[in-house]
Design a protein around this nucleic acid. Structure first.
Lengths: 143, 143
DNA sequence: CTGAAACTGAGATTGAATTGCAATTTAACT
DNA sequence: AGTTAAATTGCAATTCAATCTCAGTTTCAG
């Protein structure tokens, strides 16, 4: 489970599992979905724990390093993250109007990418696909 | 040609084709490849033209609006752009070992993405696909 | 317990990007 | 060509996420 993975990672690096770091970890895994650092910071405060913005940023970086969290994308506002442990692979569609992020997964798409890799003698290990445009709501709102 | 397209775009909006805007435009199209705003600013200075950083940013924004330039991605440092006119769409495979960037294009992939967008009632306008792994050279080198 | 090393929070700092504004330029209309 | 309103510019100030500094605090191995 993520707690163990994180503690292990810290141990290997000679880092300490402080309250702040654990607070960030558990908050990240307390909900499902994408988040910005500021939002996470506020959630932690709201949950009664304490961790400064600096610690949130610092811990987030550690969580990315140990693979528990992934930096999804960068917006005009800042970075967006998501936790990855126990979360299967998917890609994203991002609405340029309202910022909504839609997750999707397509077996066909995965296979096609494998095919393209073979054609190019490339050993693909991961990928990021981000489709930008307008979501259903924002499309209808326009007209 | 891009000069005409830009002037047309400006005309329609009641904007003026000032020396600064034209200087930015021609500099953007004076070379191939990706660039950051600051790099462009320095090139313009170096080319003997003049345009403040503010004007570079403002003009870049206009060029994106009229479709001549595309914001490729955001890095920790800032935005990266590329001119798109006369340059067809493609995606990238990036080798984690040697950094080589392989460009590829797949009609099937494009169609499949359109399909996925429809399924999600999403109006996709652009996408970025980046496949990471190891290129042919680095694969054989490993074994 | 103790001390060295790791951590933390608050505030300062960074740096890309944007904005306010006074001076300047553009171009439409005489 | 001259006039004038609107657009534009550059500079400096500002914004804002993210990072860094550093003095005080906490952790934990011995």
């Amino acid at each position: 489970m993520e707690n163990k993975i994180f503690r292990n990672f810290l141990g290997e690096k000679g880092l300490k599992p402080t309250k702040e770091r654990i607070a960030v970890l558990s908050e990240v895994f307390s909900f499902h979905g994408h988040f910005e650092p500021e939002y996470l910071y506020l959630r932690i405060k709201n949950a009664g724990s304490k961790a400064s913005r600096a610690s949130v940023y610092r811990t987030l970086s550690l969580l990315v390093d140990c693979g528990l969290v992934k930096k999804v994308t960068r917006t005009e506002k800042g970075n967006i993250y998501e936790h990855t442990y126990g979360h299967s692979h998917h890609d994203h569609m991002i609405c340029d109007a309202c910022g909504e992020i839609i997750e999707f997964y397509s077996e066909k798409l995965e296979n096609l990418q494998d095919e393209i890799c073979s054609e190019n003698s490339f050993a693909g290990s991961s990928h990021t696909l981000e489709i930008r445009g307008h979501c259903k709501k924002c499309r209808t709102k326009q007209s």
